[in-house]
Amino acid sequence: MINYHPDQHLLSLHAKGELPLSMSIAISAHAEFCAHCQQQLDQMTLALSEQQFEQNQTIQPASIEQHGQLDDLLNQFLNNTLDSLDTEVKTKPQSSLVADNSVTIKGQQYMLPRVFKQQITSGWQGIGKVSRLRLDTGEPQARASLLHIAANGEIPDHTHKGSELTLLLAGEFSDCYNTYKPGDFMLLDQNHEHSPKTTEGCLCYTIVDAPLYFTKGISKLLNPIGDLLY
């Protein structure tokens, strides 16, 4: 039974596609564990698509110029693009059928949720019982990693400059608040201090040091001045 879930705000930003990659991965992976959140996401997506495509009043009237561009694009599709797309599909060699979607650490293999399939590009680093595999999300504001803690390992007391997201993927761990199970999604801010420990070992997905970053839509961050604020 999963006890910790992303809140409605995060879910709705995710359905709109407005969260950064690191956080989108976390929500999507959580939803692979959690039928309840997946269902909410499906409903939100349905509502958004109706709002976008089935209610005419929300659409701003396109300018004459845009109409012209759309007409040109359609003509291009009909005269040319559609046929060449079909040829491309036929001739394109299909590459390997399934990506290896697992990681191995200290002799233990873990299957990862589907969303990680293109994300594991580097190796493990670490000392003692704690190992980290950095994901290259290209986001200067956040560091996303897989974190493995071997059996009977523990992370010393720590707090965070920004927020810390932990999604438990396998195994269990506990801190002074609770014991967590795979699928549990914990977002802690800098006021929380904790020292997670695990008896059987665990694999987590974490994002750290991201003050304010997670909960704002990406399109708001598009403004270049947004970056200077961090």
Binding site: G17, L21, S24, I25, S28, T45, R114, V115, F116, K117, Q118, Q119, G138, E139, I218, S219, L221, L222
Partner: peptide, 18 residues
């Protein structure tokens, strides 16, 4: 957006929302 924002040419959208 990833391309515009981070200059990344990747295609992860379909992994996130199959």
């Amino acid at each position: 957006l990833r391309k515009v924002q981070h200059n990344r040419e990747d295609a992860f959208g379909d992994d996130i929302w199959p």
